[in-house]
Simulated scan of single mutants.
Amino acid sequence: MEFLKSMAGMEYVGFSNATFQSERETGDRNYAIGYYLKEKRCFPDNADMTAALDFYFQLCSIEVTCESGSVMAATLANGGICPITGERVLSAEAVRNTLSLMHSCGMYDFSGQFAFHVGLPAKSGISGAVLLVVPNVMGMMCWSPPLDRLGNSVRGIHFCQELVSHFNFHNYDNLRHFTKKHDPRRRSDDDLNKSVVNLMFAAYSGDLSSLRRFALSAVNMEQRDYDSRTALHIAAAEGHVEAVIFLTEICKVNPHMKDRWGNTPLDDAMQFGHDVVVSVLQEYQCVYNDSDPPGDTEEQKPTLDTLKSIV
């Protein structure tokens, strides 16, 4: 359980004892397979087949949510490193083996067709969940209980098919001249400009969730707009206290950066009469000066401690 929690970034992982008891009482086929394997001497010497089946039934009774399951999928997509804690949970070899199994048999008897039409490693559950991994990009989990005759979520499979019909995620979509689908992995020349605009707009509206997402995505939180204003300038001018606290205490944005008119974020907060923001920035400036920060030109690099604070 602790291992699975670390894989899920400490998101929810639970255990259903009722499911365990039900699996234990109705798992006749599993017992039959177990005795057949025992007859063929497939178990190591002195192995307890009943204890092994009990452990298997317990594993079948572990609960996750779509949120925690998606973090598990993202850990697999990220080469075994949990993206929201930075902790290495799985070795690269274990990830490769796991994704290979998911790709070949993760969707029960539908695995061959799924590999053909979707071309991504996935794992289905009889609860109606489908865990999908796009290697080096993202992981996701969707849940819709209505199942087809093979035990897979009807809407879950449909979602996966729609996903690869729009995005260039199929394992063989990268063949030259094969497709004109959208590929979000390719960066265009104006991506940097869009990043600046999105960051500034999040600061303007006090959107803390977007700011946290940008920081987790390794966006440089000190980048400037055409007026040389940072997100901290914008948040301070608008009086968004929580955004200012996040940008200062968590992202460690330089409070001394000046815009084209020579104003710092503190100057903007004072000009528009946001007294709480003024006190936050004044206190932060003292701490920032004592910590001997890097220069304005050094690119911001989030550390593991910073990422944990953001989470």
Results as ranks from 00 to 15, higher is better:
26 T>P: 00
46 N>D: 12
265 P>T: 08
72 M>E: 11
299 E>T: 05
101 L>Y: 00
61 S>D: 02
26 T>D: 10
270 M>S: 06
283 E>R: 11
228 S>E: 14
164 V>G: 05
239 G>A: 13
253 V>S: 15
209 S>K: 13
175 L>A: 12
256 H>Q: 14
147 L>M: 09
286 C>Q: 10
111 S>G: 05
3 F>E: 06
244 V>F: 05
245 I>W: 00
219 V>S: 07
117 H>V: 00
75 T>G: 06
111 S>R: 07
169 F>A: 00
214 F>Q: 03
289 N>V: 09
188 S>P: 08
172 Y>K: 15
48 D>M: 04
196 V>C: 11
3 F>K: 09
63 E>Q: 15
191 D>Y: 01
268 D>W: 09
110 F>G: 00
229 R>T: 02
86 G>P: 07
138 M>F: 09
129 A>R: 05
275 D>E: 12
271 Q>F: 14
55 F>C: 12
232 L>C: 02
203 A>I: 02
78 N>P: 02
75 T>M: 04
43 F>I: 10
283 E>T: 14
48 D>R: 03
273 G>T: 04
79 G>W: 04
81 I>H: 00
303 T>G: 14
239 G>T: 12
16 S>A: 10
182 H>R: 13
77 A>F: 01
151 G>M: 03
18 A>Q: 05
190 D>N: 02
224 R>M: 13
68 S>E: 08
263 N>T: 07
79 G>P: 06
243 A>T: 10
297 T>L: 12
155 R>Q: 06
47 A>Y: 08
119 G>N: 03
184 P>V: 01
